[in-house]
Write a protein that binds this DNA or RNA. Structure first.
Lengths: 85, 85, 85, 85
DNA sequence: CGGACAAGTTTGCCAC
DNA sequence: GTGGCAAACTTGTCCG
């Protein structure tokens, strides 16, 4: 078998195809998102406002996560939870 | 029912949730792509070269697509295809 | 001399003016491009086809460039070119 | 001479080259702008603030232009300037 | 005016 | 950790 540095053409092809497949899926979903916004717009929604809502909720989710993380840190510091390795 | 400009809270919630679900899917796929690159790197692949291959194939695909479009334009200009409505 | 964090008003003015001058030049050229398309349209050219030709040639150029880059990467991998510093 | 719908290959070539040349000039200037920002950053400037200044001045210039235009309109309405043809 | 296309801006990632 | 690079998102522009 043709091999360069322990890499076969089939392995390379497999990797490239996996990535391309995933990128395609990602693009499809991005198109779906666009469709949802377009549909919403057609139903009288202000897409700019919609995007703001989405962004705000994302920030809030990140903030919640951060708060939970801090709570965890404090509880460990106070010996209310086992130390991490 | 509480309605503002013909928009109900339920409709809004539905749209927001659909988008957030899609965005989540997209993020998951992006993470998968990252994993594939990381795995490839672990197997001795040069990720820079890999990305270059992907990019090149993407350019080739775009070029093919554009050529088909050009052919279509030319054939219409020469009356070999029906005009678009 | 009035200086804030080692920055003088004159330096700032100079930078802003350089950028604005360059942006103005860029806008002028963009207008020239518009003119060329308009003139071509007046002479019976299909601007959509023209733009397609430009786009196709751009894709070809990008592809050539990427291929040269790939060749370089491969040759380095095979020890046919010196490693970069 | 080979002619399609009164269009010669030379004419087409000329147009395409003119556009590509202009686009190249535009790209060069864009690169120059990037350089100026990079240089400014190296000298301790906050590029984000710089961009804000540029944007603000652009808005102010547009506003001044608008105000002059309105003044002109008013003066014409009051017979203080000759009517436009 | 609305939709497509391009430009600019921001964000995330990778290498150093 | 940082800084440059590339991708994504947003914004503005231009044509139909």
């Amino acid at each position: 078998m043709t091999t360069i540095n322990g890499i076969t053409a089939d392995q390379l092809r497999s990797i490239v195809e996996r990535i391309e497949r995933l990128e395609q899926d990602k693009a499809n979903i991005a198109a779906d998102v666009k469709d949802v916004y377009a549909e919403a717009k057609g139903n009288g929604y202000d897409t700019k406002a919609l995007r703001s809502i989405i962004k705000l909720r994302k920030l809030e989710a990140a903030e919640r996560e951060e708060q939970e993380y801090m709570l965890d840190v404090y509880m460990r510091a106070m010996g209310m939870l086992p130390e991490l390795d």
